[in-house]
C-alpha cells in the first residue's frame, strides 16, 4: 500500500513537471522562438552553451549571442522592455539568453557571471542598484563582452546606457502637481525602495518640480516595497490616517500608484477628495485618468519597449564595430485628463 502511494506521488510529480515544461516552451515560442529562459545559475544555461560550438563559429555565421537581464517580469514596464529587446533581436538575427533576478541584485550579479561563463557576445541589462552591479559588469567588460545598461544606471564604464530620463519624469510630475494645486496645499510623497537609483532620481525630480511652489508642504513616507501593492496600500492608508489633510499623493512607479489608489478606494468616504499622481501607464491607469472620476489625475508615461529596442540595437551596433553614444535618452511624457485622448490615439 505504502509503495503504491509512493509510486502514485512520483508519477504525479513527474507529470506536473512535464506539464510545466511544456507550457514554458510554448509561451517562449509564442514570444520569440530564440528566447531561452535562465532562472538559476547553471542548469539550462550550460546546456544551451553546448549547442553552439563556441564564439568564433557563431560570429562567422553572423549570429551574436546576447544575454538579457531583467529585475522582474511582473511589472508591465519590464515586460515592455523584454518585448522591445526580443523584437529587435529577432529582426537582427540575434540569439537571446534571458535572465531574471527577482529584484535581488546579488542574484543578478550571479546571472551576469553565468553569462560570462557562457561566453555571450553582449549583455543588455536592467540594473536596479548602480553600485551592486558594478563589479560583475567590470568582470564582463574584462572578458571582452559588450555591456549595455537599460533603465537603471551602472556606476562603471558601460558601452551604452539607455533610459528614460527619470529626473525629467519626476520634474514633470512635481511641476504638474504644483500647477494643479495653484501653489497651495499639502503633498505626500511615497519614497520606495531606497538605494534604487531610478527611484532616487524620480524622487529628486519631484522635489525640483515642486521647488517653484514654496507654499506647498511636502511630507515623505518610505516603504521598502517588500510587500508590493498590498504593502504600499497599507503604508498610504497609515499615512493618511496620521494626517488626513493631504491634497495629493505623488507616486514613483506603478505598484505605488496602484497601492495608493487601493488605499483611497477602500476609504472612499473619508479620503475621496485626495488625488493621486501616478507613474508608469498601464491600461487600467489610463482608463481611470480618462474617466475623469478617479482619484488618479495624471501619470508619467515611459516607453519601455523603445528602451528595450534601443538597448539591443546599440549592443548590436557595438558588436558590428560601429560607435554609439554613451547615453541614449528615451522620452517620457505627462498624461493628464486634458491630453489623454491624444496619447491613446497614438
Amino acid at each position: 500500500m505504502k509503495k503504491m502511494i509512493g509510486i502514485v506521488l512520483t508519477v504525479i510529480c513527474v507529470l506536473s513537471l512535464a506539464a510545466c515544461g511544456g507550457k514554458a516552451a510554448e509561451s517562449g515560442a509564442g514570444e520569440n522562438n530564440e528566447a531561452e529562459t535562465v532562472n538559476e545559475a547553471g542548469g539550462e544555461a550550460s546546456d544551451s552553451m553546448d549547442e553552439t560550438s563556441g564564439d568564433a563559429a557563431g560570429e562567422e555565421e553572423g549570429t551574436f549571442k546576447v544575454g538579457s537581464l531583467y529585475a522582474t517580469l511582473s511589472i508591465d514596464f519590464c515586460k515592455g522592455m523584454q518585448e522591445g529587446v526580443n523584437e529587435a533581436a529577432a529582426e537582427n538575427g540575434v540569439q537571446i539568453i534571458e535572465g531574471v533576478y527577482d529584484i535581488d541584485a546579488n542574484k543578478g550579479s550571479e546571472i551576469i557571471q553565468n553569462f560570462i561563463n557562457q561566453k555571450v557576445d553582449a549583455i543588455v541589462m536592467q540594473a536596479i542598484d548602480s553600485e551592486a552591479f558594478a563589479p560583475s559588469v567590470e568582470a564582463a567588460k574584462e572578458a571582452g563582452i559588450v555591456v549595455v545598461a537599460i533603465d537603471g544606471r551602472v556606476n562603471t564604464q558601460v558601452d551604452c546606457w539607455v533610459a528614460s530620463d527619470n529626473t525629467e519624469g519626476g520634474i514633470l510630475s512635481g511641476d504638474f502637481i504644483g500647477q494643479y494645486l495653484n501653489g497651495e496645499g499639502e503633498v505626500l510623497i511615497i519614497t520606495s525602495e531606497p538605494g534604487n537609483v531610478t527611484m532616487v532620481e524620480r524622487n529628486n525630480g519631484f522635489h525640483t518640480g515642486l521647488e517653484k511652489y514654496p507654499n506647498i508642504k511636502i511630507t515623505e513616507v518610505m516603504d521598502d516595497g517588500q510587500n508590493g501593492v498590498e504593502g504600499y496600500s497599507e503604508t498610504v492608508e497609515n499615512a493618511l490616517n496620521a494626517n488626513p489633510n493631504y491634497d495629493v499623493i505623488i507616486t514613483g512607479y506603478s505598484d505605488v500608484t496602484n497601492g495608493a489608489l487601493a488605499a483611497i478606494e477602500m476609504n472612499i468616504e473619508r479620503f475621496g477628495e485626495i488625488k493621486v499622481m501616478g507613474y508608469d501607464a498601464d491600461e487600467a491607469m489610463l482608463e481611470k485618468i480618462a474617466s475623469g472620476e478617479s482619484p488618479l489625475i495624471g501619470t508619467i508615461a515611459q516607453e519601455p519597449k523603445v528602451i528595450g529596442r534601443l538597448g539591443l540595437e546599440n549592443a548590436y551596433k557595438v558588436l558590428k564595430g560601429e560607435t554609439v553614444e554613451e547615453e541614449v535618452g528615451a522620452e517620457v511624457s505627462l498624461i493628464t485628463f486634458e491630453n489623454i485622448s491624444e496619447y491613446m490615439a497614438q
Binding site: T72, S74, G228, V229, E230, S233, D255, N258, G259, A262, E265, M266, A284
Partner: peptide, 8 residues
C-alpha cells in the same frame, strides 16, 4: 482589497 491580482 486591491481590486486586481499582480503576479507578485
Amino acid at each position: 482589497k486591491l481590486s486586481a491580482v499582480q503576479p507578485t
